[in-house]
Write a protein that binds this DNA or RNA. Structure first.
Lengths: 136, 136
DNA sequence: CTTGACCCTCCAGTGACTGGAACCCCTATC
DNA sequence: GATAGGGGTTCCAGTCACTGGAGGGTCAAG
């Protein structure tokens, strides 16, 4: 398989696959003409990486997961630890974004959005609410 | 005011303030010794930027918002447009993260997390569920 | 005079790609 | 044999919003 075939198979852009090779996540063979040649295992790994990335795992997490996947003597606890840690980070991020969303929603709601310059959004951004207000 | 004072006032790291100058968001004066000298307006702008960034606006959005803030003839509609657009992006991001969270939650839940190698997380990541399964 | 807290500039690195230039390879067609 | 096209290759630069660090100048206190 050439890179185009694997790209089609996995849905990963060829650029991304080359990048994954560069950082050592896959090691495809080379043809006499210099083209990368991917075996089924390589394609499978790349699909694994694509799905891990789609779940938001970092490249380093992916590297770890791939290593665990290939290790028949792994403990599922090691996998679970990585996933749980990542899950917590996602939950934190969601909470942050929800806080932003709530504030923005309120600001957008109260803004007339007309030709006049009066704007509660800008007013809020320019206002110094003290520590107390920010905490409470 | 020197950069340290403004940093303390706004909560922005000095590095960040220098960076904001570099990209033209603020233009503090300079003392004879080369030190940046910030007036109240500069500090106010930086606080504005800090709050905008805390709401997740991109630097370019911040630039736009700051320009609108300084334009007495602005239309609040322009501000509202920027904020609404950003709000939608945040909502999209939240939805994405929630989907990841739900999947991860399920995977973590079903993983024993013990010394054995059997792991539903790795199994899921290695499995090719087709288009239908992914859509349905 | 030294110490320590400031301040300065410039350069490199982050994460995970992405775009583009400049080039090679292979097949098909005229 | 020339040409067109659709592959593939490398390498470099850019993204975003900082952040860290080296190497140095400035200033007030003791």
């Amino acid at each position: 398989m050439n890179i185009g075939d694997v790209s089609h198979l996995t849905g990963l852009p060829a650029k991304t696959i080359r990048y994954y090779e560069e950082i050592g996540l896959v090691r495809p063979a080379r043809d006499a003409n210099g083209y990368r040649v991917f075996c089924d295992t390589d394609a499978h790994k790349l699909a694994f990486l694509g799905r891990s990335r789609a779940l938001g795992f970092s490249i380093e997490d992916c590297r770890t997961l791939l290593a665990l996947y290939e290790d028949d003597d792994r403990a599922s606890a090691d996998v679970k630890r990585v996933a749980t840690e990542h899950l917590h980070q996602i939950e934190d991020k969601i909470a942050q974004l929800q806080a932003m969303r709530d504030t923005l929603n309120e600001l957008v709601r109260t803004c007339a959005g007309d030709n006049r310059p009066d704007c509660p959004i800008l007013k809020d951004l320019s206002q110094d609410r003290g520590e107390a207000a920010r905490k409470g």
